[in-house]
Computed example of a mutant assay.
Amino acid sequence: MKILLVNKFLYPRGGDCIHTLSLGQMLHKMGHTVRFYAMDHSKNIENENRSFYAKEINFSSTKLSGKFEATRRILWGTGVENGFQKLLKDFHPDIVHLNNIHSYLSPLIAKLAQKQGIKVIWTLHDYKLICPTYNCLCNGKVCEVCLTNKKNVVLRKCMKNNLLASVLAWGEAVNWNKDKLSAWTDTFICPSHFMAKKMQQGGYPADKLQVISNFIGEEQAEYIKTTTCPAQEKAYAYIGRLSREKGIDSLLKAASRLPYRLYIAGTGPLETELKKKYTANNIVFLGHLTMEDTINLLRKVCFTVIPSIWYENNPLSVIESLCCGTPVLGRDIGGIPELLESDNCNLLFAQDEELPILITKMFDTVVSNNRDELSATSLRRFSSEQYYQKWLKIVE
């Protein structure tokens, strides 16, 4: 088959980008012809089709023309149609597989593909199709009121606590609504049962929703299998974006009161603030890590912590940790429990106050864990082959 993979960025910016690139590698290995479509960006590592890509827009632009251009892209998909139509004509794909496309690209892509009789598959990495702000949070707390009435994003100023930004998010949700997106999409792939449940609450038809967990990339899996484990250190780690919804501040507050070393791997909008606030010797900020360095860190530490306060969908950070044989202490929210409840070496927490006690408990119990067994079972559970067989049933 000829498959066109679509994502707004094509470099390791986040889980959606990593998934898209890994999916492309896996499908190519399985004998399919794969091409990509994205917004043009200097960091994209897949640029074969760059002449077709949508022009880059900058949401941080201070120029009126830049803001106007970004608004037109969000509301109507301006600047997307011409290049995408040319790519469809040049490639003639059997399947257009969408990932994260809102704002920087546009759901217009689904309509254009569907009009040409091309099967459209859409993997959902966040809640943008049911929540105008994508994360089901309002003022730092879980919020679901927009699942049934999108005007609440304006009434509550959910988008950046800014009225104009919230009005724009409302306009985007109204224009690209569930009726249109359901009509243009053959199947929505939900990486978690939790996501599928929320999509149904948001009005999407159950018969268009299929659950397939994310997978670990073959390059990562091979590195885990073939490299020697580093010496284990009595330390734990957080790997992910440094932003409010990730709950990183809650973890650091707990870590600052404990004697154990915490490694923080990742960057984000809170990086500078957190480095100034938490200067204890037992808290080590590592910045962005390569794939190899991430895996080496995961195998060195005793466990990882996922303290997110938003409805995490199917986080790759959990999957990577388990595949390295490293247990996880995760918040009991969103799709996190689905990943952790099958292995008794993992723990869940609900309140921030539980963190110091449970972090200590993880250190006390980790010595009895069979990390090789956890790694082996997780590598099978989250293998690309498992994903591919389920994906194939959907597209055929």
Rank of each mutant, 00 (worst) to 15 (best):
M30N: 10
M30T: 04
M30Y: 08
M30Q: 12
H32I: 04
T33S: 09
T33V: 10
T33Y: 09
V34D: 02
V34N: 02
V34G: 01
R35S: 07
A38K: 01
A38C: 11
A38V: 00
M39H: 01
M39A: 00
M39L: 01
D40F: 03
H41S: 03
H41L: 00
S42M: 15
S42V: 13
K43M: 09
K43P: 00
N44R: 00
N44P: 01
I45W: 06
I45V: 15
E46W: 09
N47A: 06
N47Q: 11
N47G: 03
E48P: 02
N49D: 09
R50S: 13
R50D: 04
R50V: 06
S51R: 09
S51H: 09
F52S: 05
F52D: 08
Y53H: 03
Y53S: 00
K55P: 00
K55E: 05
I57S: 03
I57M: 10
N58R: 05
F59S: 06
F59E: 09
S60Q: 12
S61H: 11
S61L: 13
T62L: 15
K63D: 12
K63Q: 09
L64R: 09
S65R: 15
S65I: 14
S65F: 13
G66S: 04
G66R: 05
G66Y: 03
G66N: 05
K67T: 11
K67E: 13
F68H: 02
E69F: 13
E69K: 14
A70S: 10
A70I: 06
A70V: 08
T71R: 04
T71F: 07
R72F: 02
R72C: 03
R73V: 13
L75G: 10
G77T: 07
V80N: 10
E81G: 07
E81M: 08
N82P: 02
G83Y: 07
F84S: 11
L87Y: 06
D90S: 15
F91V: 04
F91N: 08
F91H: 08
H92K: 15
H92W: 14
P93A: 14
I95G: 11
I95Y: 15
V96E: 10
V96N: 10
L98Y: 06
L98S: 08
L98A: 09
L98R: 12
L98W: 07
N99M: 04
N99A: 05
N99K: 05
N99E: 08
N100D: 11
N100I: 06
N100A: 14
N100K: 08
I101V: 14
I101D: 02
H102Y: 07
H102T: 09
S103Y: 14
S103A: 15
Y104G: 06
